[in-house]
Computed example of a mutant assay.
Amino acid sequence: MKQFIIKSNDADQRLDRFILKAFPELQKSVMYKAIRTKNIKLNGKRCEISTRLRAGDELKIFINDELLGNQKTEKKQVFRSGSSLKKEDIIYEDENIILLNKKPGVIVHSDSKNDTDTLADRLKNYLYKHGEYDPASENSFAPALCNRLDRNTAGIVIGAKNAAALREINKKIRENSVVKKYLCLLSALPDKPKATITAWHRKDNATNIVTVMKEEFEGSKQIITSYRVIDPSFGGHVLAEVELVTGRTHQIRAHMAFIGCPIAGDTKYGRADVNERSGFEYQALCAYRLLFKKTTEENVLSYLEGREFECRDIWFLA
């Protein structure tokens, strides 16, 4: 029998999601059967899959250990990263969130090629060392990064220190209450100094390359991108600000390339001759500005609404 006392970071989530986080090797069918047969009880009573947990609840799980598998632990994961956050990596921090300045070349989350030094691991290490995260005392929660940037894209990444902040940031992102703006160097001058452009986008999961076309095609989704030219002759490139209306894989890089203005240094969608002349190791793209829109609903992050944060250390502007 496994017993949990639900803590604040476990609360306000569905019962089934908590259990699967705590025991990732547990088969869903086994869990569902245990709930039906009262082998999973909440506060000594029968519960449902969709029951939402509250702080202080007592959860008992009567499932054989071999079926449960190993309980998830972050103990090893916290210390995987060979690097740690530095003072200059932090744009803003409070008890709920942290805004990080991701450098190009750093991966946000682990993938098939790199799972030993990620920004997510660096965040966990940082919070552990500062006494804000103890994996041994958590049942299911771990600090998390809420938005993703490509490995070779720089800029602001939002980290959540607790479950309530994580839920609220994810909600704000879904509702487009978080505005992200990018600076980039384009290889050519767009036809218009300012525009909102649309196209159709499809990602090939096998190659991790996206195709952009003017008209809708099989498997495609619409993309909308806004841009404005800031300086048409910035060191031989075009300095522009870009804002995503939709958010698809490689959207800025692929969309700007589609209109004939690829980002300098982009080896996947850019121009080889321009990239060779620039000598850039990475694509000149940075998520440099973040705005929390005001909402009418009171929430745990209401104090951030209306505030704007900016990344001033942009490598291609130095």
Results as ranks from 00 to 15, higher is better:
238 V>Y: 04
182 Y>N: 00
215 E>Q: 15
278 S>Q: 10
209 I>L: 11
290 L>A: 03
289 R>K: 09
268 K>I: 11
227 Y>P: 02
278 S>D: 06
159 G>I: 14
190 P>N: 12
251 Q>K: 00
251 Q>F: 00
294 K>N: 09
160 A>G: 11
190 P>M: 11
298 E>P: 01
178 V>M: 14
210 V>M: 08
190 P>L: 09
196 T>P: 03
280 F>Y: 15
213 M>T: 13
236 G>D: 06
170 N>M: 13
266 D>L: 05
272 A>C: 08
178 V>G: 11
226 S>F: 09
288 Y>E: 03
271 R>T: 11
199 A>E: 12
264 A>S: 10
292 F>C: 07
235 G>M: 03
297 E>C: 09
160 A>F: 12
250 H>E: 01
289 R>T: 03
226 S>W: 11
295 T>E: 13
215 E>T: 15
219 G>S: 05
193 P>Y: 13
212 V>A: 14
159 G>D: 10
257 A>D: 01
205 N>D: 11
166 L>I: 02
259 I>H: 02
226 S>E: 07
209 I>G: 06
231 D>N: 15
248 R>I: 02
243 E>A: 05
232 P>E: 14
224 I>E: 15
264 A>K: 03
288 Y>I: 05
184 C>W: 02
216 E>V: 08
208 N>V: 05
172 K>R: 08
272 A>I: 14
176 N>C: 09
289 R>I: 01
277 R>E: 06
186 L>K: 04
160 A>R: 11
202 R>L: 14
234 F>N: 07
193 P>V: 08
157 V>K: 05
264 A>P: 00
253 R>F: 00
222 Q>K: 15
275 N>P: 06
297 E>G: 08
284 A>D: 00
267 T>E: 13
187 S>N: 15
275 N>S: 12
177 S>D: 04
199 A>H: 15
267 T>N: 09
252 I>A: 04
210 V>P: 03
162 N>I: 06
273 D>A: 07
152 N>M: 06
230 I>N: 05
194 K>E: 15
207 T>P: 01
162 N>P: 03
161 K>Y: 06
275 N>Q: 12
276 E>K: 14
